[in-house]
Design a protein around this nucleic acid. Structure first.
Lengths: 210, 210
DNA sequence: TCCTAACCTGAAGCTTTCTTCATCTAAACA
DNA sequence: TGTTTAGATGAAGAAAGCTTCAGGTTAGGA
């Protein structure tokens, strides 16, 4: 990827007719598919356009450059995971800390594994695209959700819910990353999930007793 | 980075005279420096050669291509961390699980933070270079070290030392990665280190009681 | 129906960096 | 000192993909 001039990375044009909305959809979907099929080294805007059934020109009408395209795809993917987390955080309000931990981890890993391949693809482009910045933005939101959930627990309150939340999510991220980047992730999810839950429960219990 | 032809990534020529050993050293060192100063987008072999005080031709005499160069630098960096871990693992033989956990985390974070900038730079190129493969190779070794250390504990033995070791290292990796890729890592190490130690102790204690 | 704005097209320009190789210099050795 | 091998040089070849833009097509309102 060429060093890119520091410019706008926002959509150039916003779809107004149904036609173009469909194009944008197709392009974003094709982005993931191309990444999955040819890998990030062979990922080209031309290939994306081909796969989406539009011309490169059209692609560049909605995304100012390759980076912006990848960022959009990444953001989309991360938001899917975030939404899953938000959902559980609401469901679990008022429960015990251990229940919360279990539900959180289950939701997180399930969301990640749902499209394991796509998740790996996203890791691979993250560095090209300042992915951590996006991840932080998106992660901030779900961090708040988790901390807010903890605040509603029926157990004695945590002294620093934000710290606990960030600790837990870092640990989850670490485990899922190692899992996904390792060989045949699906084979190993279950035991790791159980162990991660065990870890979370132990940690949360200790936090409560602190 | 251009898609590279799948070929040998091993050194082309091994240094035999002192002269060339110095060149290789300088090149490897320059690789990190260039990465730190201009970033991975502007990282070029020419720049590395310049900084190392040799010509590009010389660089290509010892590294078949850009990828091999970056891999060598990455491997070097990872091995530094691994060595630090190996060391503690030996020191801590026979201790309690909680002591082991504390020492392990301290050693890991200290090693990572010692060259925080370089660590971040390595994350940034990891994807270009099949970094996970290298990380797995190197990590395998230290995984064994940790599990072996656990096996010598004065506490009751763990039922699955390997699982516990991999769990802990994934969690450590997750925390340190988030830390390093966030803003001003040095500012936040200490509290996170303490909390990570707390987590590890809680986890290990629960494992022992299992 | 006509007109305007939205939308689409894709060949080719442009930039950039990797990598080679013919040639030169320095060291080791007899 | 003469010869051989290791080491170093750097201009230029070659490839590759991003992005543009001039011009064509479609939709929807008047």
């Amino acid at each position: 990827m060429p060093p890119q001039s520091a410019v706008l990375l926002e959509p150039r044009k916003s779809p107004v007719q149904a036609r173009s909305t469909a194009s944008v959809e197709a392009i974003l979907e094709a982005t993931v598919q191309v990444l999955l099929t040819v890998g990030r080294e062979r990922f080209t805007t031309t290939r994306v356009a081909e796969r989406a059934g539009v011309s490169v020109g059209t692609l560049y009408q909605y995304f100012p450059n390759k980076t912006a395209l990848l960022q959009a795809a990444l953001r989309r993917h991360l938001e899917a995971v975030t939404n899953a987390i938000d959902r559980v955080c609401h469901e679990q309000r008022g429960r015990s800390l251990e229940e919360m931990g279990t539900a959180l981890i289950t939701a997180f890993l399930d969301a990640k594994m749902k499209n394991a391949n796509a998740s790996v693809a996203m890791y691979s482009i993250s560095a090209d695209v300042d992915g951590m910045k996006i991840a932080r933005q998106v992660g901030l939101h779900s961090g708040k959700s988790v901390a807010a959930m903890f605040a509603t627990t029926s157990d004695p309150p945590l002294s620093d819910p934000d710290l606990v939340a960030s600790m837990l999510s870092s640990a989850m991220a670490g485990v899922s990353r190692r899992l996904l980047e390792g060989p045949s992730p699906e084979k190993h999810v279950e035991p790791l999930k159980q162990e991660l839950i065990f870890l979370a429960r132990a940690y949360l219990k200790a936090c409560a007793a602190r």
